[in-house]
Simulated assay, not measured.
Amino acid sequence: MQVANDIKESQKLIDPFGRHVSYLRVSVTDRCDFRCVYCMSEDMTFLPKKDLLTLEELDRLCSAFVDQGVQKLRITGGEPLVRRDIMWLFNRLGRHLDSGKLEELTVTTNGSLLKKYAQELYNAGVRRINISLDTLDEEKFRTITRWGRLPQVLEGIEESLRVGLKVKLNAVALKGVNDDEVDHMIQWCGERNIDLTFIEVMPMGDLGNEDRLEQYWPLSDVKRQIEQSWTLNETGYQTGGPARYSVIQETGARLGFITPLTHNFCESCNRVRLTCTGTLYMCLGQEDAADLREPLRASKDDDLLHDRIRQAIKLKPKGHDFIIDRDSQISNPRHMSVTGG
């Protein structure tokens, strides 16, 4: 264990602003079985399957980051569990947990396939999962996801809790949609010892007819509404992500806020994102990118790949510039499903 930690300390990825990049989010597919109104247009065009990295290549890339001090891997999509043979990748990456080089392997999912995969995820070493769920109302759920079924997701949550996974719900705050459900969601999560995080709508990707300004509900307003009914005690709890947490005194559960617009979290950003095509984005809201597929395929030796990763981290910007107003509803043309949620 000590050898693994020494290796990580000596090869830390440090960006130009002194931030230690220790967290890699990996999109394994841009495809999803939902079409959420703030994430995708209903008529999405997905990447040809031939353009995607193989699972073996994704394993090698993730392992290269782990060798350079990344301590947390989050598998994302699209919906990661729709990727064929995805559990092979989870099981392979689990070896880094066993060695002590990796502290956490986790996943963000819409929950549609958790009833099938929860036990296998636990067996692979996953202990904590994020589930994107914006409403507990079945009719609203159909409207938001377009293609989803709420009972299927709730069964997946139940199975995840049964096998011992720690569950956190991520809910995008949507004005006029779920603004009347906040108290119910807090109560529901508290009864199940589930953490809940609210997220502001991010101005990424063209959503067709959807008006993102109409969707946008600042979390400063959400928090004020919550505090009318609940007592929030601030805490220093961190998961390695951008959420700021409080503990709800009445339930004991944690409540997080991710505020890319009203109060960005760039000063402590420790994350980079790898797409399913091998493109590394140093910032969710910027167009800075590095191609890792080329050095990955150029040599079976990882020296070139390691060097390209280090060079890419040197390009990490100080922060993003998300803005939502009537004239600018798209700050970045990439859909979230392309970059990885």
Rank of each mutant, 00 (worst) to 15 (best):
L81D: 06
L102Y: 07
R95I: 00
H96D: 12
L93N: 09
K101G: 03
P80H: 06
L102F: 01
E103C: 05
L97C: 06
E104N: 11
V82C: 11
R95Y: 11
T108V: 14
L102W: 03
R84N: 12
L93S: 13
G100A: 04
T108M: 07
L89K: 02
E103A: 08
M87R: 12
T106G: 01
R84W: 03
I86C: 15
G78E: 09
R83F: 15
M87N: 06
E104D: 13
M87E: 00
L89D: 07
G78S: 04
V82L: 09
H96R: 00
R84K: 15
L97E: 15
L81F: 08
V82E: 03
H96W: 02
N91A: 14
E104T: 02
N91D: 15
G78Q: 07
G94R: 14
F90G: 01
S99C: 02
L102P: 00
N91S: 15
F90H: 02
E103V: 01
G77V: 01
L93H: 11
N91E: 14
S99Q: 13
R83V: 15
M87T: 10
V107K: 05
N91P: 03
T108P: 14
L102I: 02
E103N: 04
G94M: 13
T106F: 07
S99L: 14
D85V: 03
G94P: 08
P80I: 15
R92V: 10
S99W: 09
L81N: 09
E104M: 07
R84G: 04
L93R: 11
R83A: 14
G100T: 01
R84T: 00
V107G: 09
L97M: 12
T106D: 01
R92F: 13
G100E: 03
L105F: 12
G94E: 12
K101A: 09
E79D: 11
E104C: 10
R84Y: 08
N91T: 13
I86H: 05
T108S: 09
T108G: 05
G77M: 02
P80R: 02
G100Y: 01
F90W: 05
V82T: 10
L81H: 06
I86W: 00
K101D: 03
L105C: 13
N91F: 03
G94N: 12
M87K: 08
L81S: 05
K101M: 08
D98P: 09
D98C: 09
G77T: 00
I86N: 05
L89T: 09
L81V: 12
L81K: 10
V82S: 05
F90Y: 06
G94V: 11
E103Q: 06
K101W: 01
G94L: 12
W88E: 08
T106S: 07
L102H: 09
L93V: 08
E79A: 11
D85M: 02
I86M: 05
R95E: 12
L93Q: 11
P80E: 08
E79W: 06
L89Y: 05
S99D: 06
M87C: 01
S99R: 13
T106W: 02
P80V: 15
R92D: 11
N91R: 14
